[in-house]
Nucleic acid binder design. Structure first.
Lengths: 153, 153
DNA sequence: CTCCTTTAGTTGACGTGTCAACCGAAGGTA
DNA sequence: TACCTTCGGTTGACACGTCAACTAAAGGAG
């Protein structure tokens, strides 16, 4: 068994490589565009979540779930960001195990400065390159694949 | 200026987040599925390229171009793989600056063992989840975006 | 109350990837 | 010949992310 692998057809392989190559390039490019702001892409994602919360704080728990990040990834990321003064940590009164991640004034200023840059980057590289219909299709296909990922695991 | 940022519409934002979330999850999942083989995803990509070459070797140059990797990324990756005996390095006779990356017997054995695992993973997570038409659409959209990326820079 | 499992989060070691600085050879041009 | 730029590749410092081990509190079951 295992010997009878169903290899990918040339068409399947081509489509798959197109997709993976794109995502790798895109990630690098988005990160580079964000560079001038002094924020990395992970930094940006964290700050977006915190700035959308009211008040500007979230349990590590919720933050991790919203980003689909592992506990340890989040913990490391916040440690680095805390060292740079972008976020803070507070104990949770109602659950002694819990921790709130909070947005500092410096973090708020940073995300406000970076957001226009990032949006312009996303538009230039993706959103404005596709028609509305194409973008919707891309989103729908992504959702379909994601559902399967979540379902199985 | 810059103040008049064209923010993403809710539809655009939703599609964009679907796409990015998917790719993050997918990357983690593909890496995990490859785990039992002892190879990482980057390892796998390098070995695929070398095993497709005849004889089993490529100039760093070509390898980097084929993978769209930076020189330094490739150099680091090969150093680590060489230490594990998966690849070797040879001087290039015709250009004293050049280096060949070569596939060792251990590297060949590793890729032969890992390939069925990886293909099964790609099928399970992506290829077999979509219809042929959907997959082709995904590939075409990726190509379109990639063209724009290459064109601009 | 005691024990046990689950939940929340942190830490350390390690593989990965970026950037910038560097080195030596190749290939002009004067 | 000498000079100068480009090319091919390596290195070091540092940011990122995974896994596995760990601490400590919460929430049951007996």
């Amino acid at each position: 068994m295992g010997v009878d692998t169903r290899w990918l057809t040339p068409e399947e392989l081509a489509a798959w490589r197109s997709y993976t190559t794109l995502t790798e390039l895109l990630e690098v490019e988005l990160g580079r565009d964000l560079g001038p702001s002094g924020l990395s892409y992970p930094d940006y994602l964290v700050l977006v979540m915190l700035s959308e919360a009211e008040p500007h704080r979230l349990r590590m728990q919720e933050l991790g779930a919203a980003l689909s990040w592992s506990k340890s990834r989040l913990s490391h990321q916040l440690r680095r960001m805390e060292a740079r003064g972008l976020v803070g940590r507070e104990d949770c009164p109602s659950d002694a195990r819990g921790t709130y991640a909070t947005l500092t004034p410096a973090g708020l200023a940073a995300i406000r400065a970076a957001a226009p840059l990032h949006v312009a980057s996303v538009r230039r590289l993706v959103v404005d390159v596709l028609t509305g219909e194409e973008l919707a299709t891309l989103g729908a296909l992504s959702d379909k694949l994601r559902d399967r990922l979540d379902a199985r695991g």
